[in-house]
Design a protein around this nucleic acid. Sequence first.
DNA 1: CCTTCGAATTGATCCAGATCAATGCACCCG
DNA 2: CGGGTGCATTGATCTGGATCAATTCGAAGG
Lengths: 245, 245
Amino acid sequence: MTVPTLLSPDVRSDRCGDCPIRYRAVCSHCEADQLAILDQMKSYRSYSAGDTLIWAGEPVSKLGSIVKGCASLTRTMEDGRRQMVGLLFPSDFLGRPGREASPYDVIAATDVTLCQFERESFETFLGATPQIGNRLLEMTLDELDAAREWMLLLGRKTAREKIASFLVILARRDALLNKKFPGDHAKFDMIISRESLADYLGLTIETTSRQISALKNEGIIRLTGKRMVEVPDFDRLLRESGEDA
Amino acid sequence: MTVPTLLSPDVRSDRCGDCPIRYRAVCSHCEADQLAILDQMKSYRSYSAGDTLIWAGEPVSKLGSIVKGCASLTRTMEDGRRQMVGLLFPSDFLGRPGREASPYDVIAATDVTLCQFERESFETFLGATPQIGNRLLEMTLDELDAAREWMLLLGRKTAREKIASFLVILARRDALLNKKFPGDHAKFDMIISRESLADYLGLTIETTSRQISALKNEGIIRLTGKRMVEVPDFDRLLRESGEDA
DNA sequence: CCTTCGAATTGATCCAGATCAATGCACCCG
DNA sequence: CGGGTGCATTGATCTGGATCAATTCGAAGG
């Protein structure tokens, strides 16, 4: 049962056929008849920035896709040290079939709209629909690649390279979303606070802030407001990130 | 076509039914008839410690399971900085269906026996056999959890905690393999060189060596030879690792 | 037995990033 | 308008782990 009043303004209708993530989400390989079933099973739910969608270790009865917004996955140690272990963007899947609980907190980084399913009915459908399972495997392999890329960043990159690498990811995302070339002049929102960014990069807030200031002072990036970033020369930024071409 | 002469002494026959990883590998959910097909498709191959099984970026035509031994996944930056991003043990799967190339080098840490398939025929079988896909998804989710756990280690733990965490993993593995309780007195081989260990933990060889010596001097571990480790008090080691109970 | 050679340990010094401490800067609310 | 309140920036200092530099150990071979 869908709840139209919970739709965010950007989600034009509650029918799967109109969904902005129709061709990228877990349902992307589904045929029309399978989609009709998902359409019946799904419901939308909205969260505000800062809300915790899932608490680490708590069993969760819902699974679903991010339709709009951005959520973070975070692990916290007893003494309070925190490490962000992933960022979820629209079309990314939330929750793991066959697993009751998540080993990390999931927190809305911005306002988030979720397309969610009951775990049980989704798992039944998954068992009967190989397209879903295949797509889920693809997406999980992509997440694994991203996680391992991030391990290299956390283990071996300097603070400056870490910041630059993060900005490269956002600039590429901006180019993709706005159908520009990756080399073009990019302008995008940093999405997360300095504190979250520090948690993502394995740094302190202070070091994070200092390195951003340094990149700004050297003209590699330009800041408008606290969160908007412009990248006049993408290749220069890329060189700072320690990546190969 | 199997090649009996390449069998390692521990692999008693080349029939899947006798396989030591029969109930943990990608084939574990398969029925007898499906297993019979895999039995026809598979071949064994052995590698020596230090051999590169897969070069980063190179297309690979084979996929398969580790039957015996241990292999590492490593990313290298242009300037030579290296980060190990995973360790594969018996029953772990090597290669990614639907993906031509691996983004990291795969290197035999010890002598390795592989049960391998041609990519093309394996992918065809995967399409027709949901059990394989489901198991692969489970295993990939496990790898993703391990990778994210490691991100916390790389981003936030001290050198001492990193070493202790690695030893905790090996001690748990020893307990599992030898059907002991995790708290029991463990004795195991460290598998990898100090250099590889440094690459795994995001440290230098020197820091790695110093921290191991420190744990030894404080009686938290005991060393016999360079590579054999004994853990008299598992809980004490666990406390040093920064993990919660 | 001694020599060799790579891996491991140990010591001395250095520095990138952490920590401690203000200060700046919006934005809200009484 | 003034004074919170919560980020973000900037400055001063400290330190854990890196770097540079010898040993030491142990297995392999003559």
